[in-house]
């Protein structure tokens, strides 16, 4: 498995990064996202934090067009989509979804397929991989998320934490250039959440580019390189994790962190 996509501190600007400029979304006159900018190097991990309704999930879902942005440009792993255009052509959209892997809060494994089929089906249909090849990849991914013995199980037989780890394996199977996590541990109890966070930590250490919407402040501080704080549909501030956590520049950030950390 070629998951090691380079070192995290690579100084060379690589095509694998993420570049989002002036992204915005509105429903009629209701603006839910405005002027979001983000530049990520390949191998970088960025956490997005902020209060509910800040637009964190909407922003993340705009990146693979689960939500359609109304302005701005998205460039990921060689795919470039302009929201200013009337409608992105099918080829760019397909490409965008291929280079982004997504992990949902509610796992969304395919319940009628076994764990093995969940991981092999996208490879077979999207990458046109052979059955043997797809199963080989799946088996090594299962080992990586610590569940090699679950290949033949159906998702309903697994715990929430196990399902989420399988969901991560499924997303990784297409070798995406960036992994998007939408509150991956919010549906799990704190203890079970740890096993998912451990897998994500490993992934980060191996150089995966990751964008994580999260309420896990320890993860945000310890694992991510930078933190982006969102509020009210826009970016309040973006900075190195340590700095944002200990010395935020925006009053709203201070307020939010105080509320979260004083719990």
């Amino acid at each position: 498995m070629a998951l090691n996509l380079g070192t995290r501190t690579s100084p060379i600007p690589i095509s694998g990064g993420v570049h989002v400029s002036h992204l915005g979304k509105s429903y009629g006159s209701n603006k839910v996202l405005s002027d979001v900018n983000l530049k990520m190097q390949e191998g970088e991990v960025v956490s997005i934090i902020g209060p509910s309704g800040a637009g964190k999930s909407t922003f993340l879902r705009c990146l693979n067009y689960l939500e359609v942005p109304t302005e701005g440009t998205i460039t990921i792993g060689g795919a470039r989509v302009c929201a200013d255009d009337s409608r992105p052509d099918k080829a760019s959209l397909d490409h965008l979804r291929k280079v982004t892997g997504m992990v949902f809060q509610s796992f969304n494994l395919f319940p009628h397929l076994t764990v093995m089929e969940n991981i092999t089906l996208p490879q077979r249909k999207v990458l046109r991989a052979s059955k043997d090849r797809a199963e080989e990849v799946a088996q090594s991914l299962l080992k990586r998320v610590g569940l090699p013995e679950k290949a033949k199980e159906y998702p309903a037989r697994l715990s929430g934490g196990q399902q989420q780890r399988i969901a991560i394996a499924r997303a990784l199977a297409l070798s995406p250039s960036v992994m998007l996590f939408d509150e991956p541990t919010s549906a799990l109890d704190p203890e079970i959440g740890l096993e998912v966070l451990a897998v994500m930590r490993d992934l980060a250490d191996e150089g995966m580019t990751m964008l994580v919407v999260t309420h896990e402040m320890h993860f945000a501080r310890d694992v991510s390189d930078r933190i982006m704080v969102m509020g009210n549909g826009g970016v309040l501030e973006t900075g190195p994790s340590e700095q944002v956590m200990s010395d935020p520049s925006h009053e709203r950030t201070r307020q939010f962190l105080k509320a979260v950390l004083d719990r």
Partner: peptide, 11 residues
Amino acid sequence: GQKEAALTSGF
């Protein structure tokens, strides 16, 4: 979420 997972799986 099933439809979304299908789309993000590249289908």
